[in-house]
Design a protein around this nucleic acid. Sequence first.
DNA 1: CGACTTTGACCCGCGC
DNA 2: GCGCGGGTCAAAGTCG
Length: 320
Amino acid sequence: MEYFSLVDTSLDLNANPLRHIDEVPDNKEIQSTFLELGRKISAKEENRALMEELNRVSAENKKLTGMLTVLCENYNALRSQLLDYVSKNPVAEQVVVGKKRKADSTATATANGGGANGGGNSESSSSDEDSCKKPKGEHVKAKISRVYVRTEANDTSLIVKDGFQWRKYGQKVTRDNPSPRAYFKCSFAPSCPVKKKVQRSIEDQSVLVATYEGEHNHPHPSRVESTPSSNRCVTLGGSAAPFPASLSSSLSGPTITLDLTKSKPNPDSKNSNQAMNSPEFQQFFVEQMASSLTKDPSFKAALAAAISGRFLQQNQTEKL
DNA sequence: CGACTTTGACCCGCGC
DNA sequence: GCGCGGGTCAAAGTCG
């Protein structure tokens, strides 16, 4: 339930929170009303309307808060079930292999297939496939996570900005996908073992599939690059990805989706909670919220209405 | 001039 | 053993 510390759930999410301003007659009408009926009555009526609106909004906020609570509870229940399952079935826990040629290629194939589901913006857990055919005698060396990033259609670069600094060390055209695959190492290498592969989804060329291998053994260098203008729709999962929970915000729609179901069953699952509580995550979250809100035309309209409404009210009180 | 990218060559595991 | 294909290396090029 840490999420409540991150998000002010009492946010007024009404599309048109100042509806009462629209309903109130325009300035001249108000003045004439005042002249005819006197100040006390209309002031009382306005007061009552405001109170009703406030009650309505409060009730809505309460409802939304309740829904979020249920959502979080469900997530926690599911996660604990998953952890139980993983602890009872050690095979399922084997997420990755070191020299995992076979397993990895299958995983990549499924990833591309997974990209097809839901327009390439869904994530397929890499742990399932990897656990199926485990080459003999191989040990768990690194953790793999997969990230889908929606880019501009004309953006040909294979750059997934996740806040970390990467050094490209290779590029290959693979057999199952005509678009080249780029290989990156964390720029903190060799002290940091994390590698990243980035390739366009075969199904949706506007979607980049980034596969992270390993875990960063250093703090996040900067959050500045974490919200690039070109990469907006990010789905994250796993350990090497910057955040354990999946976040997505889309270019086309100013929505923020906290996909809590896609968090990987890390044996050290407390990491995800720690990351969620980390200031970096909170800043990232707030940035995402802010950028999404500023892109929302209805939010802008509501804001403009609020400001103009405020001026209008001030004018009225000054005139009276 | 240093850091980073590009790109062809090389290495290595797997399947036949 | 050989060929294929994914992954890595490293020299050359580019950029700030």
